[in-house]
Design a protein around this nucleic acid. Sequence first.
DNA 1: ATGCCACACCTTGTGTGA
Length: 253
Amino acid sequence: MNITTYNVNSVRARNAALLAFLDDRRPDVVCLQELKCVDEEFPWKDVEARGYHAAVFGQKTYNGVAILSRQPIEGVERNPHWPDDSQSRAILGWTGGVRVINLYVVNGQEVGSDKFAYKLDWLRRLREWVGGLDEAPTVICGDYNIAPADLDCYDPKGWMGQILVSDDERAHFKELCDLGYTDAFRHLYPGRKQYSWWDYRGNMFEQDKGLRIDHHLVSRPLLPRVIDCIVDTEARARPQASDHAAVTMFLRD
DNA sequence: ATGCCACACCTTGTGTGA
């Protein structure tokens, strides 16, 4: 079984790229972020034609998350621990015997801003929620908008204190891990420099100047099943690609 | 300090992203 996390940066603008990804890679489960459309505009027919079930939590213009799976998706919950939040950022579904949580974590715009305060509070609520879950095998994947360590940033000195790498954000990520979740990629490859996002501007992808901000956090019962985790840079290199690559984790059956 | 790029939007510029 494999589980992909993929920030598509508009599912409508990325329709051809997404369908090519599904056709080429044949993933079992795909967690999408930044749909940027309402549920009615999601490409239901295209993904269903390729054999996927879909659980969608859309929003006009911004945010929006979805889970695709070759197997049925049950027990779907949307923003389960953010009852008064109008932003579609979290969806949970059970599929293939795994509790899949798909997140589009707040960006935060600028350290110290109102949006940054919202990001920290959102992360606090995430931890509060996840900390109360039972021991069922769980993966929490998505766009975390946090590069957990300097190794996850092409220019740690230049980015010091900035959004995505600040100490506050990293502390939240570490506390989430301390609840019993492991960053699958870093667990497998402790010293590997591998990014998942590259700015559209300045040919950053061609220079491999990026950040690793898309992650799979796996719960203790699931960790022994983790075989591999790869970043699909090929899809990022194509024309009209998202600025994020798809990241896929492979589990032993 | 700004734009650099890309996306959505009751667009002809603005807000947001990372």
